[in-house]
Design a protein around this nucleic acid. Structure first.
Lengths: 226, 226
DNA sequence: GGAAAGATTTAGTGTGACCTAAACTATTCT
DNA sequence: AGAATAGTTTAGGTCACACTAAATCTTTCC
């Protein structure tokens, strides 16, 4: 496209790629992010990622060691955080001000984040009282490019029987799964208690704010509790 | 980019082109819109317009008679009005809810209109009480694709000495000119009276809500009064 | 009516972003 | 260590969107 990005000149695919790298660097501890990981995450052919990576490296946003992986540079990290801030502020605004469903905001924000100016995002944030987290419980980077460490939390899937905690965030972008979790009452802030865990990564039986629920292992891995 | 358009699959440049055609069809009465007009309006080389026109014609959005010009089809008109609605709702929202200046919203809306879903736009419109016009006084197309006729109004530049009226809209997209007009108090709704007109399209001396002002001929041509 | 002027289209380039298929590198397994 | 496997890059193709330069069509003006 060429649909033209707001200003500093990054294209939407480039911003998406940086965001994905940022995210994968966070989860995979310290290891360089591989082409394959990115391809899966972005739903692209690996060869396409190689091309994007080359462009980003040319712009000094990432370091690329061929066949070895990719790492954000300082300026790449800043760009990623700027996009992440946009995304999360927009999500929060859509939910809190415009009444979008928790599970519906992701795609909308995914598009708007590439079109909204920093000023717009700052105004949205200000009108929300500069919230620290988005509706899924993820921290919102500040205007200045800082970001709170993810509050310590373990996946629900790893809690032992009898343990209890409060849902800190839900790390999922799939609307169906989010909707399903929301329908069970599993949203940031509610208290959960693990009643029983099937072995070998089976389903988890729990109490969500008192009522008994059963959720599968994949889902349980996305729900972070503190 | 290919920054990816919201859904039905039109790209941002394509939407911009349709909007421009719609607009030019309105102003030039009945005549087909020429490649050159579009090139000027969109700030592109004429050859680039020919290419875009070909793509739009292939999709049945316009009829193109080579060397003769272009006309919107029914479906092209609908697409143009959808984009126009997005644009004007977004502008209105930015001004009324987020406190943007009247003169600053255009560029922001220009980008957002290609990323915002119909649902988002409808929610914005609803939260504004489904306004009929945008901050510049231009009518906002409805959800259903209708649009009010532009209220009858003449350019300020054509009023005779002694005539008075109310500013209906300001047909300009240039932020500097809008800011200047706003600084003179020339915004939709205010009463103006022509005190004196220099001949041969010279400046116009007027009273804006009582206070004397002087504005040049180009600007006066953009200010529509009823 | 024909030639100059002006508008429009065609031809040929370049870039970003995607793809598949083939070549290559690194790792892992015996 | 060498071969199979898995992951990565290169090669080559496509499409949308821009450009300039060259052809072509229309109109307008004697």
């Amino acid at each position: 496209m060429t649909a033209l990005p707001v200003q500093g000149a990054l294209t939407a695919p480039a911003e998406d790629c940086l965001k994905a790298i940022y995210d994968l660097e966070r989860s995979g501890q310290g290891a360089a992010v591989t082409t394959n990981d990115l391809a899966h995450r972005l739903d692209l052919a690996a060869a396409s990622v190689t091309g994007m990576v080359k462009r980003l490296a040319d712009q000094g946003l990432i370091d690329h060691a061929p066949y070895r992986g990719v790492r954000l540079t300082e300026s790449g990290r800043r760009a990623a955080l700027r996009t992440l801030r946009r995304h999360r502020v927009i999500e929060t605004y859509l939910v809190q001000v415009l009444g979008f469903g928790w599970d519906r905001v992701h795609d909308e924000a995914e598009r708007l984040e590439h079109a909204a100016s920093d000023e717009l995002v700052d105004r949205m944030a200000a009108s929300l009282g500069d919230p620290a987290t988005d509706p899924h419980g993820a921290p919102i980077p500040t205007r200045e490019g800082g970001i709170a460490e993810l509050p310590a939390a373990r996946p629900l899937a790893e809690l032992a029987e009898g343990e209890r905690g409060v849902v800190a965030r839900v790390e999922d972008e799939d609307a169906d799964r989010l909707r399903y979790l929301a329908s069970l009452g599993v949203v940031p802030g509610v208290e959960v208690e693990v009643v029983e865990r099937a072995p070998f990564g089976g389903p988890v039986s729990l109490r969500v704010a008192g009522t008994p629920r059963l959720i599968g292992p994949q889902l349980a891995a996305q729900v972070m509790v503190a």
